[in-house]
Structure formats: structure tokens, C-alpha cells
């Protein structure tokens, strides 16, 4: 491959690495279940479960030891016949709603769910009242008292001088 120039080779390596990066998953082959249907359910569920060590990764993404243990445990629950909701509840019972990346709507999470909406409403209200004030301002300007004779003459003079 002597004829490939260095930059091209660099790009090729980069492209190869990008492809690899896309396929990298934390789930090890020996963790996977034989039954592809159950395995698919486990994968879907673990995408919604938070790794408690890394805290912003799902257990499906995380390489942490605990995430691996939780993945295996989740699969055990599914094999034992748990429904998706039961398997999730099993972990919520131990780690709380915190383990869910998509937290449920209830008293303790109201701020989380309603907060952004409230902020948006406040922002819209501020924007509207600002826009209305500006509109009122222009109307008020238009309704201002007409120029008296002296003012008209001065304005004409000013405009004339600017024309030159």
C-alpha cells in the first residue's frame, strides 16, 4: 500500500474507527440470552435503566461492573417470567425512581415535569407583554400632538439641509 499517501491513509483509519465506534456496545456476548425475543426485550428495557455508577448512562451503554450485574439480573428476571413492568419494578424497589431514565409523573417529580413548561409559559408571557408594549408605543407615537408652525418649519429646514 506504498502508493497511498499518508493523509488518505489517516482518513481511512479514521473512517474505520468511526465504523467500529458505531458498533461498540457494553453488552458482552456471554451475557446475551439464547432466546432472541427475550434478549430484544432485555435490550429495550436496559436502555431505560440508569447505571447508578455513571449516572448518565443506561445500563445498556455502561461498562461499569454494576451495570453488567444489573443486565444479568434483568435477564434472569425475564427468563423467570417477569413482565417488562415487573422487571423494572424489581429494580425500582431497590434503587428508587432514580434508576429510571424516564421518570414517572408523580408528586416527587412534578417540578421535573412541569418546571420547563412553566418556564416556557413565563417566557411566552414576557415576550407577549413586551411585544404589546412596543405596539402600544408606536400607536402612542402616531397619536402624538401635531407639530406647531415653528416645529414644522424647523423640520423642513433640517430635511432640506440633509438633502444637500
Amino acid at each position: 500500500m506504498m502508493w497511498i499517501k499518508a493523509p488518505v491513509r489517516g482518513l481511512a483509519v479514521l473512517a474505520f474507527l468511526l465504523v467500529l465506534q458505531g458498533t461498540a456496545v457494553a453488552v458482552q456476548p456471554n451475557e446475551m440470552l439464547q432466546d432472541p425475543k427475550l434478549e430484544a426485550r432485555a435490550r429495550e428495557l436496559s436502555k431505560d435503566l440508569r447505571c447508578l455508577v455513571c449516572q448518565n448512562q443506561s445500563i445498556d451503554d455502561s461498562d461499569a461492573d454494576l451495570a453488567k450485574d444489573l443486565r444479568i439480573l434483568l435477564r434472569k428476571r425475564l427468563v423467570a417470567g417477569d413482565s417488562d413492568a415487573q422487571a423494572k419494578q424489581y429494580l425500582v424497589d431497590r434503587y428508587g425512581d432514580y434508576v429510571l431514565l424516564d421518570p414517572p409523573f408523580k408528586a416527587s417529580t412534578v417540578v421535573l415535569w412541569v418546571g420547563p413548561l412553566l418556564l416556557l409559559l413565563v417566557a411566552v408571557w414576557l415576550a407577549l407583554s413586551y411585544a404589546r408594549r412596543r405596539a402600544l408605543g408606536t400607536v402612542a407615537d402616531a397619536q402624538a400632538a401635531p407639530l406647531n408652525e415653528g416645529e414644522s418649519r424647523r423640520l423642513a429646514a433640517l430635511l432640506k439641509s440633509e438633502d444637500k
Partner: peptide, 13 residues
Amino acid sequence: SDGHTGIDFGVYG
């Protein structure tokens, strides 16, 4: 040894 009891207690470290 498998950390299962830890998980039952809610251990995360």
C-alpha cells in the same frame, strides 16, 4: 461473590 445481595440492599458502590 456475585453482588446479588448487594443489589437487593441497593448497593451501588
